[in-house]
């Protein structure tokens, strides 16, 4: 039984011509790489409209600064979809908070309101705002992360230990029109913008 010699792998002998050919081929490929739309199929197309959208309360009406109670919170679906299944998506739920009076909730403008993603930055349970005296903060039921309603910073619990941007909740910018109706400004889904749901936001 003759044994086949193992392939010669230690040679390292490559002719100059071959090397140049290799360079040319690699260069050609590299030249065209920036023009290929790599992987654009994979991410979900962002449902960002360039227009502002209404803050629709659970009862179907639009939130208004004149009627929304101080120190109160509601769960909002944003962006609202035609598909009821998608509207149940935890990543589309937002906590719409009117701050307590000591934090400036009595003003009748957008500064009295906050809109934070309800997805806890730790393990993605849904936290909510507790308006009781002595609490007045967002609390996650799963592992006890607590969120500051004024800034969205996790100040206690496991999410507070996470490195930025994963310790600040994503938030949406709001504006109020002449009739007092509250609108959501078009978001910028980046960590340095409005933040990434489930990931966090850089505090600017």
């Amino acid at each position: 039984m003759s044994q086949r010699q193992p392939p010669n792998v230690d040679g390292g002998k490559i002719s100059r011509r071959d090397f140049l050919k290799l360079l040319a081929a690699a260069g050609t490929v590299m030249t065209f790489t920036p023009f290929v739309d790599w992987g654009k199929f994979l991410p979900n197309p962002k449902e960002t409209s360039e227009e502002r959208s209404k803050v629709v309360l659970p009862d179907g009406s639009q939130a208004n600064v004149n009627t929304f109670k101080i120190n109160h919170a509601e769960a909002i679906v944003y962006p609202m979809s035609e598909d009821p299944v998608l509207n149940e998506e935890a990543f589309r739920t937002w906590q719409f908070i009117r701050l307590p009076p000591e934090l400036g909730g009595e003003k009748n403008d957008a500064s009295a309101f906050r809109m934070y993603s309800m997805v806890c930055l730790h393990l993605w349970c849904l936290w909510k705002y507790w308006p009781e005296d002595g609490r007045k903060r967002g609390e996650c039921p799963c592992h006890g992360t607590m969120y500051d309603p004024l800034t969205g910073v996790a100040f206690a619990g496991p999410a507070a230990l996470q490195a930025p941007p994963s310790n600040v909740l994503p938030s949406l910018d709001l504006e109020v029109d002449d009739e007092g109706n509250i609108w959501i400004k078009p978001p910028n889904w980046t960590p340095s913008g409005n933040g990434v749901v489930g990931y966090g936001r850089f505090l600017t």
């Binding site: 992987g39 994979l42 991410p43 979900n44 962002k46 299944v85 998608l86 998506e89 935890a90 990543f91 589309r92 749901v197 990931y199």
Partner: peptide
């Protein structure tokens, strides 16, 4: 993450 897993639980 965005590419492989999409955005949100539905994805």
């Amino acid at each position: 993450m965005n590419a492989f897993f999409g955005s949100g639980f539905h994805d």
